[in-house]
Simulated scan of single mutants.
Amino acid sequence: MPKRKHCDRAAEARQKQLYLIFDDWSGGYTIRHVNLPSGTCEVAEQRLPPPFLRLPGTRGLANYFAYAFGASIIAALPQHPLSDNAMPIFDVRKRSFISDLCKRSFISGLRGFLYALHTDCLELLCRSQQRSPGSIAGESWSWHMLPKPPFLPLGVVSYAVHPDGPTILISSESFFDNPMVGTFTFHTNNSVWTKRGEWMLPFDGRAHFDGDLGIFVGLSRDPKTLGHLCCCDKASLNTCNSNTDEWPAPAWKLCPKKLFSGNPGERHVSATLVYLGSKSKFCLVECIYFEDVRDDQVLKEGGKHGCRHSCYMYRLTKFTLSYDSKGDLKTKSRRVGYYKVPKKASAESIRDLPVAFWL
């Protein structure tokens, strides 16, 4: 029996959790892990757990956080937004810092590597098992300069990592006098940029590949379909191994049901879609402004009133994707929960996308 309990505890310790990052500390940021919503209906506000880590850094730069390498959260937090400084890498499983590096802001992780897209260049961060001076756990970390992208990185609106080949897809829109607009690929083995067409990926920000359904999934970029999911079949982008420069625009579908909150007392601010890793499960972390509303609009649980005063909240919607009988994408098993955004969080971080990781 003791051995079984020990195994159970070890299994629980390996379970993934949703991590939220706030800049609600006077010296920088806090990292908290929260429970995903359960049950079949909307529930009242849940208590935000205390932070298990405080990370010093310039506030208002939450988009400098990224993750890669399994259970590591990387924070490229300069003491000044225009300066290079130490970049802490924190392993959430080991509850310890792995290493410090210099730089950056990130765009994507791929097969144990991390790519950083800057204003004028692309760099690769990778690790090896060779121990270097100052490294921890026998790992060496280093940056490598890659070919400059043919577009202005500040114009990037969506991107995805193809599962079958070493290819990152990036769509860039017009930005200042940027003449290169459309969708591009970067072949990570050959370090070659290629323009694939004037068309754009339909996603707003990152698209996740759902291996169970064989589709890329993301939030719609079209203002007319704000709050809806859209998807592209993997087959539509299966020309990643083709030598043809021009690709046809991929076919894509829209999920008819809006995923953002429809409560009249909740105003949408921003949202981040998080893929939960398997079985077509996702979590939408939506920042809303909860207005002071009437009693019949207030969230209730067990007959008790929820939040009554105006505030910012994170609305967590856990759901599973599937196809209906007509072949349309639909969400099922939707579960919704709420966490109040700490009052000390900066206005800059509230306006940005919620920073959430499934690790």
Rank of each mutant, 00 (worst) to 15 (best):
L229P: 09
R59I: 09
S270E: 12
L213A: 14
S270V: 00
C232T: 14
E139D: 05
V157W: 02
N243E: 14
L359W: 01
P166L: 07
V274A: 00
D292L: 14
L124A: 01
K258H: 05
T320P: 00
V293F: 08
F282K: 02
F260Y: 15
S322A: 12
V157I: 13
N35F: 03
V43F: 04
C231I: 11
A76T: 09
A116V: 05
G197M: 05
G197A: 05
G70M: 02
L276P: 06
L125S: 02
K304I: 07
L101Y: 03
S38Q: 09
V34P: 03
P88H: 02
C7Q: 10
Y29K: 15
R131H: 05
S171H: 10
R351W: 07
S349H: 07
R59C: 04
P354Y: 01
T188C: 15
F176L: 15
I74K: 01
A13I: 01
C126M: 11
T225R: 13
K195P: 06
K148M: 09
L273W: 01
N190Q: 15
T183D: 10
H208D: 10
F290R: 12
P78W: 05
F319G: 03
E123H: 00
K340Y: 07
Y339L: 09
K304L: 11
K332E: 12
S105L: 14
D245C: 13
R47G: 00
A207M: 10
C307T: 15
P202N: 11
S158D: 13
G303Q: 02
F209G: 12
G205V: 08
L329C: 11
S310W: 00
K94H: 01
F357C: 05
A44I: 00
E198V: 12
D210H: 05
F290H: 13
S99P: 01
I107W: 14
G39M: 01
N263Y: 04
D210I: 08
V217C: 12
P250N: 03
K326P: 03
A13Y: 00
S349Q: 06
S83D: 15
D100F: 04
G214T: 10
T185N: 09
A62E: 05
D23Q: 10
Q15T: 08
R59W: 02
A13E: 09
A271S: 11
G211L: 12
L101S: 05
E173D: 12
L226C: 13
F186I: 06
I107F: 15
G262K: 06
R9Q: 13
G327Q: 06
W252C: 04
L124W: 01
S26E: 11
E45I: 06
S108E: 12
N241Q: 13
L48R: 01
R54D: 00
G155T: 08
D23P: 14
A160C: 12
T30M: 03
K5L: 11
P51G: 07
I107P: 05
A116L: 06
